[in-house]
Computed example of a mutant assay.
Amino acid sequence: MRILVFILFVFGCQIVNAQQVHHEMISSQGGTTTTANGHLVRYTVGQQSVTGTSSNGYVVQQGFQQSNWAKILEQNTISIATTVYPNPFVNEINFSFSTSPGDKISAYVFDVLGRLVYSEDIKNENNLIKLNLLNLSTAEYLVKLSSDKFVHSAKIIKK
């Protein structure tokens, strides 16, 4: 009987270890809907990491990891073409603008969980700003640039 219990225990541990997922899964298919009661429901298909969270705002996120970037993204108040290069980058990434978005631009970098990992206020010089992100780990990030009249969000990848 002890041998059977031991075999089941070892087999069970292997199953638990088999559930580890790759840490770089970022996107999936899914959507967001609002119920008749006004509750926000987010659903995904295809993500590999299981999690469940909720907040005081009655947003239920159950089953699979939800994108936290949706609450960070905003719309531009004016139209300015923004070019991001190089992307992927090694240490430094550049943002060039078709017209001036203002003298001072605030840059915020978020990880895939929506956590702020870097922020800086940068002086706009000749419609170009550079971010030195040497201290960030190799991963995918969301960068949000904003000034008094401009907001831009972009996905960046650090090699």
Rank of each mutant, 00 (worst) to 15 (best):
L4D: 04
L4T: 04
V5M: 06
I7S: 02
I7P: 00
F9W: 12
F9V: 09
F9A: 14
F11A: 12
F11Y: 13
F11K: 01
G12A: 15
C13P: 00
Q14H: 10
Q14V: 11
I15R: 01
V16H: 01
V16R: 01
N17L: 11
Q19W: 07
Q20E: 10
V21Q: 12
I26Q: 08
S27M: 05
S28E: 01
S28A: 15
Q29N: 14
Q29L: 13
Q29G: 10
T32A: 11
T35N: 10
A36Q: 10
A36N: 12
A36I: 15
N37S: 13
G38T: 07
H39K: 14
L40H: 03
V41P: 00
Y43G: 07
T44F: 05
V45S: 06
V45P: 00
G46Q: 08
Q48C: 06
Q48N: 13
G52K: 02
G52V: 04
T53S: 14
T53F: 14
S54F: 12
S55I: 14
S55Q: 09
Y58G: 03
V60I: 15
Q61V: 02
G63W: 07
S67C: 08
N68Q: 13
N68P: 00
W69F: 06
A70F: 07
A70M: 09
L73H: 05
E74D: 01
T77D: 12
A81I: 14
T82V: 11
T82I: 01
T83V: 09
Y85H: 06
Y85T: 03
Y85K: 06
P86G: 04
N87A: 10
P88A: 13
P88E: 10
F89T: 14
V90L: 12
N91Q: 15
E92S: 14
N94M: 11
N94D: 09
F97L: 09
F97H: 03
S98D: 14
P101F: 08
G102S: 07
D103M: 05
K104Y: 05
K104N: 07
S106T: 14
S106Q: 13
S106D: 10
S106Y: 06
A107S: 03
V109L: 05
V109P: 02
L113I: 04
L113T: 05
G114V: 05
G114Q: 00
L116E: 10
V117S: 02
V117Q: 05
Y118W: 09
E120A: 10
E120C: 02
D121F: 00
D121L: 04
D121W: 00
I122G: 00
K123Y: 07
K123N: 09
K123R: 05
N127C: 05
N127F: 04
L128H: 11
L128V: 14
I129C: 02
I129A: 01
K130V: 13
K130D: 06
L131W: 03
L131A: 04
N132D: 15
L133Q: 06
L133H: 07
L134D: 14
N135T: 15
L136Q: 08
L136G: 06
T138P: 00
A139G: 03
E140Y: 15
L142F: 12
V143P: 04
V143C: 07
K144Q: 15
L145W: 01
L145F: 03
S147W: 10
S147E: 05
D148H: 13
D148G: 13
F150H: 15
F150V: 12
H152T: 03
S153D: 03
A154F: 00
I156Y: 02
I156G: 11
I157W: 01
I157Y: 06
I157A: 08
K158M: 11
K158G: 08
K159Y: 07
K159I: 08
